[in-house]
């Protein structure tokens, strides 16, 4: 995992563009609402990129835009879950390889959390698609997802290591 990337926030958005989890990662964590807006607005650029890209393009969508002191990067999983990461805007080159590593880690965190079979314990059988459970993974009652996301953030240097 690269050293200081200035990871500020991460957002997971479902294929239907519903928010799954939006988490501010910088310490001290500042306005969560701002990251909600950033995640929501970046969907525009993500849609644009996906529309412009050829089929079976890479998941990594690269730099989306910079606004309000953060640079927003996008990633879309093969199942169209969008991951948006905000980095604090510094005057330094952010290596794509580092960003991809962060995204892959977040993707894995998401994937592991959704794989939790207990998510579906109280879910009716006729849920039209998976997305209900996806949203559930981000809800407050399931802490595993947050924990995994925080672990990634810690590894990326955004959060202090707990037992250090």
């Amino acid at each position: 995992m690269p050293a200081q990337l200035g990871l500020a926030a991460v957002a997971f958005v479902s294929p239907q563009n519903y928010p799954i989890l939006i988490r501010a990662l910088s310490s001290p964590s500042d306005d969560l609402l701002k990251y909600h807006y950033l995640a929501h607005t970046s969907l525009d650029v993500i849609d644009e990129r996906i529309a412009a890209a050829p089929k079976n393009a890479e998941s990594y969508l690269g730099f989306l835009y910079a606004m309000e002191e953060v640079a927003v990067y996008g990633y879309v999983t093969p199942l169209k879950v969008k991951i948006v990461v905000a980095f604090a805007l510094t005057d330094a080159v952010i290596r794509d390889a580092d960003v991809i590593a962060v995204f892959k880690a977040f993707h894995l965190a998401y994937y592991r959390s959704v794989a939790n079979p207990f998510l579906k314990l109280h879910v009716p059988l006729d849920t039209p698609s998976e997305h209900g459970t996806l949203l559930l993974a981000g809800s407050a009652q399931w802490r595993g997802f947050r924990r995994r996301v925080d672990e990634v953030a810690r590894a990326a240097g955004a959060l202090p290591v707990v037992n250090a």
Binding site: Y65, A66, M67, A71, V93, I94, D96
Partner: peptide
């Protein structure tokens, strides 16, 4: 080649 500096990525004037 490796990546870009978001601080020097020019965006449209709306920003």
């Amino acid at each position: 080649v490796l990546g870009l500096n978001p601080a020097s990525a020019l965006q449209h004037p709306g920003f």
